[in-house]
Design a protein around this nucleic acid. Structure first.
Lengths: 219, 219
DNA sequence: TAGATTGTTAATCGATTAACAATC
DNA sequence: TAGATTGTTAATCGATTAACAATC
């Protein structure tokens, strides 16, 4: 009997779930039906113990002496991640990044349906991007309210991001996928997932500088 | 006397440095000259203790009874992150994401100089994107060798990413900023920084689903 | 000098790994 | 049944927080 999960799951665990999901998908595609935590461990370069601990936060998906059924486990992880449902999404900012995400979210993952793209540039009004109409920013609030929009991807400059995010929160958005280089200050019931590319690039830079440092020391 | 950092710094610490850098930049822009770990703690919503611990991994940048000089601390963090230098970069993939990064890396952060953009589509040869010439994929290896390229941003489908990454490693690239939805398997001296947007979106999805779950429980 | 705040050591908390009994 | 492998408890390791002496 599966228990409803009660204890709060750490974000470290959550961060690993999509990667499990990806590997299980690859295994499934290549026709692998079952896998043990040990085999998966070798492929993914994490410990088997961690895999079992992570999964057992959500229930027992395996079978002693057998391992895990690949398709079943992937499906269960999909449920845990909530990607077995569909979500309505808008893209705010019709620049290259907005366009990339529009195309990406729509094609790559069926579950995230892009309903509209918004921009402040009047010249873009009525333009279509990947079959989705570009609308004016001032229409956004009503659009979110009337079209049951769950998620907004913010691909706009940091100067306007905080204000627009607050407006979206007022309009009842549930989550913001934030690509703007700033922290948003929103009521805690709004989910925010940050993608700060500049910070990612700085981490890369650190590791590059540090790799060289290490090599010098080894000499 | 500042010690050369010897112990390995945890990636949790490194991940926080760019955020410190950003906040310090904002403070500097608004004319703040000095700040205590306590004030910074309140703004950034992390503990003052953590700020002091993080910084003291790299040396003592503050002064008892005074706090930290904003400009000086920011500069020192820049050095730690290695963003006081310039790096030569190429973009692999001239799609929307590649274009977004080309524009972004060049304008937003002066230190990362985009020297070339590569694509397999012959129609794009010779095209200019933000003043940078688009070149054919087969020229890439020689280009990396002859132009002292440090970093490659991979914005290509996962099918070709692993192979191209290996080729770039052969050509002497130092780091790969990987936007492809796959893990790269490269020699350990190559730095890899992954930006897996689909995994980010799944985390958002989890948190959204979970937020709703929690709210239901609270009722 | 007195007050403020760092740098750093110690205590706590949480996450990862190891071990093994349960069980398919 | 014997072998394999999970689920889960215990041990270890590391990261965060608290406390405070050092010192500007």
């Amino acid at each position: 009997m599966k228990e409803t999960q009660d204890k709060r799951i750490s974000s470290a665990v959550i961060s690993r779930l999509p990667r499990y999901y990806r590997y299980l998908g690859e295994l499934r595609e290549s026709g692998v039906e079952r896998i043990s935590s040990n085999e998966l461990s070798a492929r993914m370069k994490v410990t088997a113990s961690q895999i079992r601990q992570d999964l057992n936060n959500f229930g027992g998906f395996g079978q002693q002496g057998y391992g895990y059924n690949v398709a079943y486990l992937q499906q269960e992880i999909a449920k845990i991640l909530g990607i077995d449902k569909t979500y309505n999404m808008i893209i705010v900012g019709a620049g290259n990044l907005g366009q990339a995400i529009a195309g990406y979210a729509d094609f790559e993952k069926r579950g995230f349906v892009v309903k509209g793209i918004f921009d402040i540039n009047p010249e873009l009004t009525g333009t279509m991007i990947r079959g989705i109409q570009v609308r004016m920013a001032y229409e956004m609030k009503d659009f979110v309210r009337n079209n049951n929009i769950d998620i907004a991807a913010l691909t706009i400059p940091k100067e306007s991001a905080v204000e627009i995010a607050s407006m979206l929160a007022d309009a009842g958005i549930k989550a913001i996928w934030n690509f703007a280089h700033t922290d948003l200050n929103l009521p805690k019931e709004i989910v925010v997932e940050n993608v700060h590319l500049s910070e990612s690039l700085m981490k890369l830079s650190y590791n590059m500088a540090n790799r060289l440092r290490e090599e010098r020391e080894e000499e």
